[in-house]
Write a protein that binds this DNA or RNA. Sequence first.
DNA 1: CCTGAAATTGCCGCTAA
DNA 2: TTAGCGGCAATTTCAGG
Lengths: 157, 157
Amino acid sequence: MAKSTIVLDEIDRRILRLLQQDGRIAVTLLAEQVGLSATPCLRRIRRLEEAGVIARYAAVVEPSRVGLPIQAFVQVALSSHAEEVAAAFHKALAARGEVIAAYAMSGGMDYMLHVVAADFEAYADFALKALLRMPGVKETRSSFVLMALKPPGAVPV
Amino acid sequence: MAKSTIVLDEIDRRILRLLQQDGRIAVTLLAEQVGLSATPCLRRIRRLEEAGVIARYAAVVEPSRVGLPIQAFVQVALSSHAEEVAAAFHKALAARGEVIAAYAMSGGMDYMLHVVAADFEAYADFALKALLRMPGVKETRSSFVLMALKPPGAVPV
DNA sequence: CCTGAAATTGCCGCTAA
DNA sequence: TTAGCGGCAATTTCAGG
């Protein structure tokens, strides 16, 4: 996982596009579609993995199909930005599985969280009993997802 | 991709957890880790795929490593909620690769977008020239990601 | 192109309703 | 007894050299 920026040519980009669509595609098939034979194609894939361009491979699980139909985005403001407070808050976030993504943000609110829950009761429990009691939390603002127009998808390469 | 809710037992959940961590894990190895032999394990995986629990497999690409270090969440309000307007807006969104996720939301703003860009200029181009001119867009509010604390991760199963 | 390993399929046995 | 689930073995396909 080298930090350096890597130069991608058009073939690398095509490989990335295809692997984002289907992370389990056989190298043989992938190679065919980008106009290489398997060996150099595999070399490129390894290079992309080692450079950290491909962070990992994952099965994309549909939350609504595993009993988690409620999704929300929550903006959070902290009352203090002292390092210990932020660190404790980060740790508290990390321990919560329902927080599937978390970002520190610019602007009025300090964080943006993407949260899933089984129902509104479970969400309320999270928002009131867990989140609001996390270290330093001053204010939260929840919005619920009504419909996913574009489910978390591919990065344009 | 059946719509019906599917019953997951503890082994299914373990399979899902492992596949979310590593979507390319060999079935043989996966089977070992969940205490099955390869055949029934593979059968379960197929079942989860067919039920739409596993929507797809994907290589997770690090945006900052492919020249897209800027990430923003944008809330969008439409001036009209007429069906044609919304549909035209959805179509316009779909055509924009930098929008990596889009949701219709409850609350004051109608949509939440997750956007990536190469730099602020590219972001400004998107926000001013593309987004604001999309059908029905009344108001937008952008917040930038300063740091990803929890990059889009696993759904808790 | 070759070799070993993995995925996949057919077939059989066990168990619980 | 039958539907459901797991395992073994044979075959095909793939990864990696």
